[in-house]
Amino acid sequence: MRNDNKKSVIVGIFVLVGIIIAVVGILTLGAQQKVFVKSVGLKAVFDDVQGLQPGNNVWFSGVKIGTVTSIKFYGDSQVEIAMNVDADSKEYIRKDSKATISSDGLIGNKIIVIYGGTTQAPAIEDGDRLQAIMPLDTDNMMETLQENNQNLVSITNDLKVLTGKIANGEGIVGAVLTDSLLADNFKNTLASLERTAANSSRITQDLGNFTSSLEKEGTMLYELSHDTTIYSSLKRTASELENTSMTATAAATNFKDASEKLNSDDNAVGMLLNDEEFAEYIKATLKNAETSTALLNENLEALKYAWIMRKAHKRKAKAEAKAAEEAEKAND
Rank of each mutant, 00 (worst) to 15 (best):
E277P: 00
S264I: 02
R202V: 08
G218N: 03
Y281T: 10
I282P: 01
A268T: 11
A251S: 10
K235R: 10
N297P: 00
M220E: 11
K287E: 07
L234M: 15
T291K: 15
A252W: 03
T285G: 08
Q205L: 13
S212N: 14
F210L: 15
N263V: 04
A284P: 01
Y231E: 07
E280S: 11
N299C: 04
A238W: 09
L241F: 14
K287V: 06
L300I: 13
S192D: 12
E194N: 15
T249P: 00
N209A: 12
D206N: 09
N263A: 12
A294Q: 10
E298S: 14
D257V: 15
L295G: 05
A191Q: 13
T285W: 14
D266F: 04
L295Y: 10
S245C: 01
L224K: 04
N199Q: 12
A279L: 09
N297C: 01
F186M: 14
T253R: 13
D265W: 07
E223T: 11
N267I: 04
K283V: 08
S233A: 08
G270I: 03
N188F: 06
G208C: 00
H226I: 02
S192H: 06
F210M: 08
V269C: 03
L207V: 09
E301D: 13
L295Q: 09
S259Y: 15
N288Q: 12
S200A: 14
K283L: 06
F186H: 08
V269N: 05
A238H: 06
L241P: 01
S292Y: 08
T204V: 07
L272Y: 13
K261F: 01
T204F: 11
L190V: 14
T247C: 01
L224D: 02
V269Y: 08
S225Q: 08
A302C: 00
M271R: 13
A252I: 11
Y281F: 07
I203G: 00
S233E: 11
F278G: 04
T293H: 11
D227Q: 07
L190M: 14
I203H: 01
E298K: 14
L207M: 15
G208W: 04
G218R: 05
E242N: 13
H226F: 09
K283Y: 06
D206E: 06
E217P: 15
D206G: 06
A252V: 05
D265V: 11
Y305S: 03
S233T: 13
A248K: 11
T228C: 00
K283D: 06
L272G: 02
H226S: 09
E194T: 15
S213N: 14
A238M: 08
L221W: 12
K304W: 02
A294S: 13
D266K: 07
A250V: 03
